[in-house]
Design a protein around this nucleic acid. Structure first.
Lengths: 133, 133
DNA sequence: TCTAATATGATAATCTTTATCTAATTAGAA
DNA sequence: TTCTAATTAGATAAAGATTATCATATTAGA
């Protein structure tokens, strides 16, 4: 939380609410998740503010956008290098912390400047699995 | 191409045009790419038909949806297990053929049934790199 | 050639995300 | 504490991607 307070970021009640919601949140919420949840407490929250704030936090490097669910973007405050496991049914996302040290073979990389990688595992979570087919 | 002709798929001119366009196409086109291109030759092509056909081909397993560009979905007719490298600037996608044999550590997997994985490498392609900062 | 089943295309609808712009608020100086 | 410049919020429009609907047209096979 403290990490958000620095670097000339104007602290408004809306931003604080969003940051508070995100801080330590391991559920990789979507913009809509954030909006819906905070709206219950601060009904004056606007969708635009959610996107604005996410954009600001992304630029500051305090939040990372996850592209793993084709339906919508998810956000993660864990900015350390890690990977994800997604349930194809309920779309729940789980963190996978582990350095797989994967690299593109030289012959396929060519002159491409590779900046990083992200592994997306997919499958069916225990909850969805027990609910049957 | 021949692989599309089987299994009780009704062959309409529109479908054939889409299949022909996709066959051997290594550019991971988006629905819009497909639509725009084919429209020039078959002006009667509808966007709905593009999506319908993609859906059909996906179900048949002849096409795979790639979730790597947050802006839109891309499609790949190479259904073999492989990974992708995307340019953060121009969004061009390149195939990476290589089995990295990565697995989730048992303690993090739990009862999750893992069905597969996909590695997304990102960076800047040679073309965008030479265009300079 | 005929028919049942399926696909097309036009269009509306939905959903996510971005853009615009004015009024309100914040941070920091005075 | 007050004032001011800069930034942000919120309302809303707009854009863009994808899905849904449904009457009409087309296909495959009898």
């Amino acid at each position: 939380m403290q990490k958000f307070r620095d670097k000339g970021l104007k602290l408004t009640p809306q931003r604080l609410a969003i940051m508070e919601y995100l801080d330590g949140n391991r559920n990789h919420p979507s913009a809509d998740d954030i909006y819906s949840k905070i709206r219950k407490i601060y009904p004056m929250m606007s969708f635009a503010t959610v996107y604005n704030t996410l954009e600001t936090l992304k630029k500051r490097g305090d939040v990372v956008e996850i592209t793993i669910d084709p339906e919508r973007r998810h956000y993660d405050t864990d900015t350390s290098h890690h990977h994800h496991l997604i349930c194809k049914k309920c779309k729940k996302i789980k963190d996978i912390h582990r350095d797989f040290s994967i690299n593109i073979p030289e012959d396929q990389k060519g002159a491409f400047e590779v900046l990083g990688n992200h592994v997306e595992f997919y499958g069916v979570c225990p909850t969805c699995n027990t609910k049957g087919e």
